[in-house]
Amino acid sequence: MPNFAVHDDYQTSARIELLDIAELAPGGECRANVWFITPEAYPNTLWRGREIVVSEASHVVGKAIVLAVFNPVLERHNG
């Protein structure tokens, strides 16, 4: 199960739903819906265009780019 670095010192896991494909091959790209667990522990941490490091144990396996934020607890508003 991959972890997502929502802060420099905080990673969380998530439920992941791949869109349009059944499995993501190493080095591949896809669109996915991601539901982070305990979002109240790291509010205001997501915005469109943000890149998040994805790791498994201590190995970085990729990055996620936020295309949209649907949870208002997680969405950061500038202003």
Rank of each mutant, 00 (worst) to 15 (best):
T45H: 03
V34Q: 06
H59G: 08
R31L: 14
A41V: 09
A57N: 07
E29A: 02
P43I: 07
A68V: 09
I16W: 13
V66F: 09
P43S: 06
R31F: 13
G27Q: 07
W47D: 12
I37V: 07
N44M: 03
E29G: 00
Y42P: 05
H59V: 05
A68K: 09
L18T: 08
V66N: 04
T38I: 10
G49I: 15
E56W: 09
A25S: 08
L24N: 08
E23A: 12
E51K: 15
A57K: 11
D20I: 15
V60D: 13
G62C: 15
E29R: 00
G27D: 02
I52T: 03
E17D: 02
L24D: 06
P72G: 07
E40G: 06
F70A: 14
S58Y: 04
V69P: 02
K63Y: 03
A32D: 05
R15F: 02
L46I: 06
N44A: 05
N71D: 08
E17N: 01
N33G: 12
P26Q: 07
V34R: 12
T38E: 10
G49C: 14
V61F: 03
G49M: 10
G28A: 02
G28N: 00
A14M: 10
F70D: 14
L67V: 13
W47G: 15
W47M: 13
A41Y: 11
F36T: 05
I52D: 00
E51A: 15
E29V: 01
T38Q: 11
P39F: 04
A32R: 04
D20A: 15
L67Q: 11
L24Q: 04
S55A: 09
N71L: 08
A22S: 14
C30N: 12
W47T: 14
V34C: 14
H59W: 06
E17L: 08
E40F: 10
W35Y: 15
P72I: 09
H59R: 09
L18K: 09
A41E: 08
G27K: 03
N44F: 09
V53D: 03
V53E: 07
R50Q: 03
R31D: 05
S55V: 04
P26A: 07
P72M: 08
A14I: 11
